[in-house]
Amino acid sequence: MIEFNGVQYATDQYEYLADFDAWNPELAAHIASLENIELTPAHWEVVNFVRNFYQEYDTSPAMRVLVKAVAKSLGEDKGNSRYLYTLFPKGPAKQATRIAGLPKPAKCI
C-alpha cells in the first residue's frame, strides 16, 4: 500500500503498484522519493520508456532486456548498465519499473 495525497494505492507484496492504470506522474515522483531518487528529465526518459515497453509487450523488463531495449530505442550511450545505474543506483530494472507503476520484473527473464 502506498499512500499519497490522501489516496491509497494498492501494491503487491514488494510495494510495486498493483494497477498500471492507477499511475500518474505525481505518484511516480512520490515513489521515486521513497527510493531516494529525484526525477530529472533523464530519469523520465527511462520511466516513460518502460511504461511504453510494458504496454507493448505486457512484461516488466529485467536488467538484460532493459539494457538491450533502451540501447535499441534511445541509443547505445543510454542502453548500458553504467548509465542506467547512475540514474537508478539500486538497480535500474527494479527501481525504474517501480517508479513507472509496473509489476516487479521476474527474476528469470
Binding site: 507493448e56 505486457d58 532486456v65 538491450k68 531495449a69 535499441k72
Partner: peptide
C-alpha cells in the same frame, strides 16, 4: 487477452 504478447520482443528487441 494475448498470453504471448512478449513474443514480439524476440524480433523487436533482440
Amino acid at each position: 487477452y494475448d498470453p504471448l504478447k512478449k513474443i514480439a520482443m524476440l524480433n523487436n528487441v533482440f
